[in-house]
Every structure is written in C-alpha cells, then in structure tokens.
C-alpha cells in the first residue's frame, strides 16, 4: 500500500509552507496579477491538506477528495472573475500597482 511510510505530518508541513508563502505574497505583492497567483498558491495548500487527510484518515469514504473538487471549482471561478476585474481596473486606472488602487481608501 502506498503512502504509508511517509508520515501525514510531512504533507501537512508542505501544505503549511505553501499557505504561508501565499499569505506573504498576498501582503507584499505590488502587481495585481501576482496577488491572484498568491491566492492560487494558498488554495493549493488547503487542497494538499484535504487530500492528505482524505488518504490517511478517511481511505474508504474519500470526502476530502470531494471537498477538493469543490475547492478547485471555486478557484477556477475566482480566477476568471478576478482577472476580468483586473482587466477592467487596468483600463480605468491604467496601472496594475496595488498601491494606486486607493480610490475608496480615504
């Protein structure tokens, strides 16, 4: 049986690292496209968690895989709408710099 000798914690560690890198990129990116990429990284980290739990703790009823499918669906929808908003914003403001999207700030 595969995936028995690698501990569950190894997958959780990778998922945590991916999520934290995504959070860091989300905070520190100036380019709006890179912000969307960071969100995709975070969603992938969550998906690795779901799949690891599904394989190690719930091998017969693979509910984690069902949830992962829903997460992938929502991520695809989010990417499409997010990039459409980004294009619209770029046409109106002529920039993708997150620091200059401050119309509603103060």
């Amino acid at each position: 049986m595969s995936s028995i000798d690698i501990p569950l914690e190894a997958y959780l560690t990778i998922a945590a690292a991916l999520f934290c890198i995504g959070v860091w990129g989300l905070i520190n990116s100036r380019n709006a496209v890179r912000v969307l990429m960071s969100i995709e990284l975070m969603l992938n980290g969550v998906n690795i968690n779901l799949m690891a739990f599904s394989s190690y703790l719930d091998g017969t009823e693979i509910r984690g895989q069902v949830y992962a499918i829903f997460v992938i669906t929502v991520a695809a929808a989010e990417a499409a709408v997010g990039l459409a908003i980004l294009l619209s914003l770029y046409r109106n403001r002529d920039t993708v710099d997150m620091e200059r999207f401050n119309l509603l700030r103060w």
Binding site: S2, S3, I6, Y11, I14, E40, N44, N47, I48, M51, A52, S54, S55, G59, I62, Q65, A68, I69, I72, A75, A76
Partner: peptide
C-alpha cells in the same frame, strides 16, 4: 503529490484545470 496520495482523478483534474 496528489498521485502519491491515491487520488489519480484529482491529479488529472488539477492538471486540466489549474
């Protein structure tokens, strides 16, 4: 990684969608 976690369908979906 999904392939190593016994999830071949999700791995294929990941490649197709992402």
């Amino acid at each position: 990684l999904y392939l190593m976690l016994n999830a071949s369908f999700i791995a294929a979906a990941q490649i197709l969608i992402y």
